[in-house]
Simulated assay, not measured.
Amino acid sequence: MGFPLKPIIVLVALILALPAGAAQLTIELDHTQKTWQTAELLKHSSAQTVHIAKDVSYKREMRYRAVPLAELLPGITAQNHLQAVALDGFAAELAAAPLLQKNGARAWLAVEDPAHPWPLLGNGQHSAGPFYLVWTDPQAGHISPEQWPFQLSTIKQLKTVAERFPALLPDPTLAADDPVNLGFALFQKNCLACHRLNGAGDAQMGPDLNIPYSPTEYFGGDFLKRYIRDPQSLRHWPQAKMPAFTTSVLPDADLERLLGYLKHMAGRKQP
């Protein structure tokens, strides 16, 4: 028995009508949800060409067609919290305040034009597209490499990390300005996009940083500091994804606070 041709012809026509390489980004906020298509964003009234002097992913100068991210976050305030999820499971936790800034470090959603694709990130890899969170003047806001998520699929509003994952919390008797609590804030900014701790977190890339052991328990001397500063200097392999956290991104004092949090949490393991 033959198949009817009309449905097949219609299906083929629909497929051919789709723009090659088109993609979509979903933004889920508490009060609204919108899915943006590539073409919509490229034609957005606020879209412009931005110059990135030193791109975190490409390690060189880049230019992108981009929209100020704040323009895509209606109703979001500085007190809110967002998560940017990539196609590979990378989940960047983002305080809303820096994303809303119009001066200094400014967040942009770079949009890959299918007609002019971006370079590949490496042999056998994809580009940073279809959507990539980039920053102009990032040094003005001490923007971490983890705040440059690429291959984005979703941006969503969530409760804070502390509210969602109590297993990450330091001893509640510590003062708010205790170095351990300051280290917890740094952990959220620099580590939680790739790593879980005590099994808590949304990331699916790196290992848990407390279960079964904290790196502070098996890295002796200053080797953990050296590893964070330059992972490839201690463990070299082609598939490594952890970036180097230089002093411009993570000053020495902040690195000490981060390590202080990890050491503290080594004594607060949860099954």
Rank of each mutant, 00 (worst) to 15 (best):
P98K: 00
N210S: 11
V180K: 01
L192V: 05
P138W: 07
Q147L: 14
A140H: 05
A96M: 04
A97P: 10
A200R: 02
L121C: 01
F150D: 15
C191S: 11
E146L: 14
T136M: 15
P119F: 09
A110I: 14
F131H: 04
A96G: 01
D202A: 07
W135E: 05
L133D: 09
G199C: 07
D113Y: 00
I211S: 10
S144V: 13
F184I: 01
K102M: 15
P179W: 01
H126E: 11
W118N: 14
F187W: 11
F150R: 14
G104Y: 08
G199T: 03
P130S: 03
H195F: 11
N190V: 12
A110M: 13
I211G: 00
L186R: 09
G183M: 09
P179L: 14
G141L: 04
F150N: 12
L158S: 05
Q139H: 08
N210E: 15
P138F: 06
P119W: 10
H116S: 15
N190L: 08
V134Y: 14
L133R: 02
F165V: 06
G199H: 10
E112A: 05
A95N: 06
G141S: 01
P212D: 15
L174E: 09
P207I: 06
L120H: 03
D178C: 03
H195L: 13
G129Q: 04
A175S: 14
V134G: 03
G199F: 10
A167I: 00
P170L: 13
L133E: 12
A176K: 09
I143F: 06
M205C: 00
L152A: 12
S144R: 09
D177T: 07
A167R: 05
N190P: 07
L209E: 11
D208K: 08
G183N: 07
L120G: 09
A115N: 04
G183P: 10
P117M: 05
P179D: 02
D202Q: 00
R106P: 05
P145W: 13
D202C: 07
